[in-house]
């Protein structure tokens, strides 16, 4: 079983996350790591490969060249190799462009399964898999909280606004997994040491057969027109617990006559 996992390097959450007001793009200069939701997809891929007894887990990503550092976390967990599509002409890609690049890279890999995380914490789109699946012409199931693979079919359970659906699909398929599907393992020391030696390819757009005009701003169909101030929620208090947090919560409620 060959499993491709789409993973993304994202800026760490916290107050320093911002959109660059000059370029109107995500500021990616600060601390970054592998999108935490994608670890669940990596974990599931490794488990499926282990259960099948053979196969390969390939991480596929589009991002800046330095994103390889973040991909190493997936390799340390147990993925076999990483493929990063990185090109200055791909910066600023929206959904149309990103899905085109990933689908093209995935096509060349011909995997049995393509796994996605449930959302990227920088864009919170939770849509990319559907676009990639359409380009690959694979069936797609998203928000998967339970998954079973048997022969050429997968059976998945997922939550919607109306309860739970169980969906069966034929392989090859695109699957987006929810964070509840599994608990991602921590890489072992051996895994971390071994990760550096695993194959890690960086390819430019031309290497995967795409023209520069198909990605980045040129290949995108959406645009950010301007930034505004977010509505303020008023004063917020943030404290470290020094043994008195419970008392402070109670005082806070009592002052506002809420208990």
């Amino acid at each position: 079983m060959k499993i491709a996992v789409c993973v993304k390097e994202v800026p760490d959450a916290g107050p320093n996350r911002r959109i660059d007001p000059g370029t109107l793009r995500m500021d990616r200069s600060g601390d970054r790591s592998l999108n935490a939701y994608d670890l669940h997809a990596v974990e599931q891929a490794i488990r499926l490969k282990d259960a099948a007894g053979d196969g390969e887990v390939v991480l596929v990503s589009m991002g800046a060249a330095k994103a390889l550092e973040s991909l190493r976390k997936g390799l340390a967990m147990g993925a076999d190799r990483a493929l990063l599509v990185s090109d200055d002409a791909a910066a600023g890609s929206d959904l149309v462009a990103t899905s085109k690049v990933l689908a093209k890279a995935l096509e060349a890999e011909s995997p049995d399964l393509v796994l996605f995380g449930q959302q990227a914490t920088d864009g919170d789109g939770a849509v990319l898999w559907a676009a990639v699946a359409d380009r690959l012409q694979f069936p797609v199931v998203s928000q998967i909280s339970e998954l079973e693979v048997s022969g050429d079919t997968i059976t998945a359970k997922r939550q919607t606004e109306h309860g739970y659906d169980t969906i069966r699909a034929a392989l090859p398929a695109v699957l987006a997994v929810a964070d509840s599907l599994n608990e991602p393992r921590y890489p072992s020391l051996k895994g971390i040491m071994g990760a550096k030696k695993k194959p890690q390819d960086t390819k430019a757009l031309a290497d995967i057969g795409l023209d520069a005009s198909e990605a980045g701003d040129a290949g995108s169909r959406t645009t950010v027109l301007g930034l505004g101030e977010p509505p303020s929620r008023g004063e917020t208090i943030k404290i470290e617990d020094e043994g008195d947090a419970a008392q402070k919560i109670l005082d806070f409620l009592v002052e506002r006559k809420l208990v």
Binding site: I19, T222, L225, G226, G228
Partner: peptide, 10 residues
């Protein structure tokens, strides 16, 4: 929701 933006299509 820490940022607000106007978005369009090309």
């Amino acid at each position: 929701d820490t940022v607000r933006a106007d978005v369009g299509w090309t």
